[in-house]
Amino acid sequence: MSSAISLLPGPQLAALNDAYRRAVGRRRLRILISAALFIVVLLVACIGAEVNLKTFFTYFGNFVSYFDRILKLDDGTRVWTNIPEWFWGLRKWLKMLGETLLISYVGTLLGTVCAFCLNFLAAENTSPVPWLRFVVRRLLEFARTVPGIVFALIFVMAFGLGPMAGVLAIALHTTGTLGKLFSEVVENADMRPVEGIRSTGANWLSSMRFAVLPQVIAGYASYTLLRFEINVREASVMGFVGAGGIGQELLVAIRKFYYSDVSAILVLVVVTVFLIDIGTGWLRGRLFGEEART
């Protein structure tokens, strides 16, 4: 069966082709202007940040040589040729790594509880009054804007050296981050169940409990697990300011040029984060289905 293809008249076809060429030209011009603006902004940012490629390539060898040194033992052999000597302080390091995990766990738990209590007040569709939403949002912004290690330094000065400063710093930063994420989850919730419950005379707290919370609890748990994984990395470096954990031992090894100790501690931290990532991914899959792992 043959089919005929109708052809437009010449003038109409020429007009369409001309309009198409103009549209393609405008699109290409926008792409070129955007690329030029991107390059200009990139150059200005590099100048402002004092990015010097000459310095980078001149001293890049120092970066490579440092990694070469941390992969050697004191006798000059590679670290993997003598594993017991490489991990000579394994018992002490595991104890401090356990302290890091406890810091991140307690800090995440406290931050999650605070974020859970505040996020309904920060969400646009559930906050009782606008002024309260404004105040809570600003508090959450402050908590997540200041780096966690700065909070740790402040708490070390206030409460002294030790894990307590790390717990408080992680809890405060987690409150700001999860409070923002939780409130966004709430703002995407269906409000029709809330209207139904409020029509029965239920108060605001009951509406949140029975209409909103069942919709958002899965997102809360998923974000909390992800934040715990992030907080393990955060807690690993808070020892640099005396907030406890494996970071304190890592800082000592760096300052005293114990190169093989640096690599051993880094391996322990990386493996721990890998295991936590795998574990939290498996847990999310068990709680919310296989699609939650991706």
Rank of each mutant, 00 (worst) to 15 (best):
L53V: 04
P163W: 05
V216I: 10
R293C: 02
L268H: 01
A211C: 09
V267Y: 08
S260R: 07
V216T: 12
A221V: 14
A165Q: 06
L16D: 09
V271H: 05
D74N: 07
R286S: 13
C114E: 05
E187A: 01
V185R: 05
A122I: 06
G148N: 04
V129K: 03
A158N: 03
M96G: 02
S236V: 10
L32E: 11
I170G: 02
L283T: 13
Y223I: 00
T112P: 02
L43I: 15
D75E: 09
T145Y: 13
L121N: 03
G162Q: 08
P84T: 05
S2D: 14
V167C: 02
N203D: 15
R21K: 12
W131I: 13
Q215S: 07
V271K: 07
V269T: 09
W93L: 06
Y20D: 13
V106C: 08
A23S: 10
Y258T: 00
T272M: 15
K180P: 02
L132F: 03
L73D: 06
V271S: 11
G162C: 06
I39W: 10
G48V: 05
V216H: 08
I254V: 05
K180C: 01
V64I: 14
L90D: 04
G166H: 06
V106Q: 10
R286L: 15
S65N: 14
I265Q: 11
L178N: 01
S263W: 02
T58W: 07
L29H: 04
